[in-house]
Design a protein around this nucleic acid. Structure first.
Lengths: 152, 152
DNA sequence: TTAAGTGCAAATATTTTGCTGTCAC
DNA sequence: GTGACAGCAAAATATTTGCACTTAA
């Protein structure tokens, strides 16, 4: 992911174990792939990378592990404006939330942190009495390079 | 949708025709369903409602019409935090954007307009040089009633 | 030891595509 | 009249489930 990751390897594994989750060889492999990913990956890409480490890993195990991570709030699920169909993408939950911009022309994904975003969440918690557990903000449009070239 | 709709019937149809889009009996039916919907509907619900008006309408035509409306920026597609699986939900694009809160306990969907939200979009356009065409902000958590009752 | 996890196969759900006939303009 | 659209069937894609075997704790 573009934003700097201050992530120690093994952190996900430690986190899950501290919550009493059973640690298997397959899970360790998948967690390491999630942790070291440099972009947003979908289940199939995750499976492919996991199989480079352990060729026996099954696709279903990837789905089940992702569900586990979501349930524990350790990864966030993204749709990236359905730019690539109905795939879901995953990223480690960051310390500070960010939003995603998807360029509808070139497909680039940009991330952005903002005080206004943080304040908006605060406003929602306060004014709507809504207890926020997950946020997903995705924006579709044209990135600076593509808007310069004019509409497609 | 909870927020007040200042929508004239036939507006979608007029909008499309003014853009030179061919108007068929099926499209008119589907547009009227989209316009009069009181909640966010997915493709199957839309089909069911359309068939009450014209039982001959095909599911594929619903999908194609939705794609047409999305392409013209007349409806927005929502995932509602995948609370109901991978369905997509649709709503007429509002004059002012709002965000969606999905209660992970009771499944209620709330909408919220906010100046901070508007300002955040302005900030993105300015600071990221990103030309915004669509926004989708969805928040998962517990609504005021459900948080009062404690976690599930 | 045993409850939880894995792999395999099959099922499910949603959306898209190819093709032929039909209709809006 | 003709190019865009509708309906039908089939395909494609993504994800989930049932069940017997395996393994972490």
């Amino acid at each position: 992911m573009p934003l700097p990751q201050t992530e120690q390897p093994g952190r996900l594994q430690a986190e899950l174990m501290s919550r009493g989750v059973r640690m298997t060889r397959q899970r360790r492999t998948i967690l390491s792939v999630v942790e070291t990913a440099q972009q947003h990956l979908d289940a199939s890409q995750l499976l492919r990378k996991a199989r480079r480490i352990d060729p026996e890993i099954d696709r279903v195990t990837v789905y089940r592990t992702l569900k586990l991570l979501k349930r524990h709030g350790l990864v966030d699920e993204l749709d990236l404006m359905h730019l690539q169909g109905e795939k879901h993408f995953y990223e480690r939950r960051p310390q500070r939330d960010h939003l995603h911009m998807a360029c509808l022309r070139c497909g680039k994904i940009l991330e952005f942190e903002s005080n206004l975003f943080d304040r908006l969440k605060g406003q929602i918690q306060r004014e709507c009495q809504f207890h926020i557990l997950v946020t997903r903000m995705e924006i579709g449009g044209y990135c600076s390079q593509c808007r310069a070239t004019g509409p497609a």
